[in-house]
């Protein structure tokens, strides 16, 4: 191998390494995580209160109401959002995964629940199992171990939710929603904002 061939190889390897590192970056501002987290939390609390105050006529409608708000938010944000940061292909893959997961959860929740195929008392467990998949995939694709670990935490928590119901299940579900969805959403948002903290460099 000549010296020049070696140099060319080194140069191409350098270019490849920079491009591969960049491919993992995404431009997610975490807003979707925060908004969906709070909406599902609010829906869960509303359902619990309706049950507590014996208002069965509102059962089921709360989730329909909050999920509809979530989808409207997604439609508006997706239309407005301009991915200024991150690899476009990675952004596309991640957002496609999340849209697929949200559609799956909507079908499972409403069709699965209304048809009686899925026991409503254990619906949260089913939902959280699906959520674990999205977190695991996002972590694996972006190379973020802590996001991948969130997937395992969702899966672990969802297993527990297949065995408990009532107030204990509601407490576990709410704690998971805050700790594994809303707080990570704020972390994503802080990381995203950090990209814009520019010094006066020009």
């Amino acid at each position: 191998m000549t010296n020049q061939t070696k140099k060319a190889q080194e140069e191409l390897a350098f270019i490849r390494s920079i491009m591969e590192d960049s491919q993992r970056s995404i431009g997610d501002n975490g807003l979707g995580f925060i908004v969906w987290g709070f909406l599902i939390l609010a829906a869960g609390i509303s359902e619990f209160l309706f049950e507590y105050f014996n208002l069965p006529q509102f059962h089921g409608w709360t989730f329909l109401f909050y999920v509809t708000i979530g989808w409207i938010f997604m439609a508006v944000v997706t239309k407005k959002s301009k991915h200024l940061l991150g690899n476009p292909l990675t952004n596309r893959i991640i957002s496609t995964i999340w849209i697929a997961v949200l559609i799956t959860m909507t079908i499972l929740g409403f069709v699965g629940g209304a048809s009686g195929v899925i026991n409503l008392n254990y619906m949260t467990g089913v939902m959280y199992t699906v959520l674990g998949t999205a977190y695991f995939l996002q972590g694996a694709i972006t190379g973020k171990t802590w996001v991948k670990a969130l997937g395992f935490a969702w899966w672990g928590g969802s297993i527990a939710l297949y065995f408990v119901s009532g107030l204990p299940a509601a407490i576990i579900a709410a704690t998971m929603m805050i700790g594994l969805q809303i707080i990570p959403g704020f972390i994503f948002n802080r990381q995203w904002k950090a990209h814009f903290e520019e010094k006066d460099h020009e």
Partner: peptide
């Protein structure tokens, strides 16, 4: 070369993200 490689992959990016990708000082 690092700037061009990063931009070829990212399409659009901020100064800070470029700085991280390239590993250079601000100046």
């Amino acid at each position: 070369l690092a700037i061009m490689a990063a931009l070829a992959s990212l399409e659009t990016t901020s100064f800070k993200q470029l700085k991280q990708a390239v590993g250079a000082t601000d100046g």
